[in-house]
């Protein structure tokens, strides 16, 4: 009996190797980026770095105002984008008929997600900063990022609502609940984990955006923390961009340190979204 492998086994092994290689290509950059940022940036992290304002054009001091600004932005974005997204999602999934209007809206939402972020920035500059006279401010930036986040909050809300089993709606309607009561008391509570997951992901994206806020209110350095939504603000991604590209003689550790903080903020929100999703799934299947 020959010991040479049959050709089909060889081709199977080739295919396996290719698949594994492709998967590795996907994973390796993520791991390398994280390792590189952690190794290089960990040295910059200290209590002062996280709690003090910067000095000497960011070469010394900390990045507290940028961290705070980023959290304000996330908060502002979600306060605007979540209610609008959920309401639109309810309308689109429960009330809208499948006509040309709805199809146009759906197409608009898909395209909303594809618009380059700097275009949102210019839109925000034209509409919120100049037309509505909000000026360069947290409010204008939150509104701008909210427009961008809407694509995600509407889509995830709609999908979450559509995934609520029809049996629940029927059970509610069959005891004489109105359509709105059915949505309010049966459908929305069931859809909530999905909606929240989408909202958290939208927040983490808002935290990482640089281009849109560049033109609607982010500042590299401010002497004071923002006192009202109409003040300018500092934000982590813009701070990172500036210290990395525009400040000569910037200590490299500081640059990596800012990147590390930004990465932790964004990733922790992604992890939070995953946890919410997993817990909701577990609850659904455990009973």
């Amino acid at each position: 009996m020959k010991t040479r492998k049959a050709p089909r086994l060889v081709s199977q092994q080739t295919a396996f190797s290719l698949l594994i290689a492709a998967t590795a290509v996907v994973v390796i950059p993520v791991i390398v980026i994280i390792i590189q940022i952690v190794l290089n940036g960990a040295g910059a992290i200290s209590w002062d770095f996280l709690t003090q304002p910067p000095s000497q054009a960011g070469k010394a001091g900390g990045i507290f105002p940028a961290i705070l600004g980023t959290f304000y932005l996330m908060l502002g974005t979600i306060i605007i984008a979540l209610p609008v997204g959920v309401l639109a999602g309810v309308y689109l999934s429960e009330y809208a008929r499948d006509d040309w209007m709805t199809r146009t809206v759906n197409m608009a939402i898909v395209n909303l997600a594809g618009v380059p972020s700097i275009v949102y920035g210019l839109f925000g500059l034209g509409v919120f900063v100049l037309m509505f006279h909000f000026g360069m401010s947290l409010l204008a930036a939150s509104l701008t990022l909210a427009c961008q986040a809407l694509a995600m909050t509407v889509t995830t809300s709609r999908e979450a609502i559509l995934s609520v089993p029809r049996e629940y709606r029927e059970g509610s309607l069959a005891v004489g609940a109105t359509r709105w009561q059915t949505i309010r008391h049966v459908v929305l509570p069931q859809a909530m984990p999905g909606i929240i997951t989408g909202a958290v992901l939208a927040m983490s994206r808002a935290a990482g955006e640089t281009a849109p806020i560049l033109v609607v209110g982010a500042a590299f350095f401010l002497p004071a923390l923002p006192q009202s939504p109409l003040d300018q603000f500092m934000a982590l991604p813009y701070h990172l961009y500036t210290v990395a590209a525009h400040i000569p003689g910037m200590p490299r550790t500081t640059i990596w340190g800012v990147a590390l903080v930004l990465l932790v903020v964004v990733l922790s929100f992604n992890v939070l979204a995953t946890i919410i999703r997993l817990r909701a799934r577990k609850r659904r299947y455990s009973t």
Binding site: E167, Y168, E170, G171, S172, A174, V175, G176, A177, Q190
Partner: peptide, 19 residues
């Protein structure tokens, strides 16, 4: 229709208690 469904209740094929 809401009043009608109060008077005419319905039980479904698959038990569908709310969660």
């Amino acid at each position: 229709v809401v009043e009608l469904r109060k008077k005419v209740g319905m039980v479904f094929q698959k038990p569908n208690p709310f969660p």
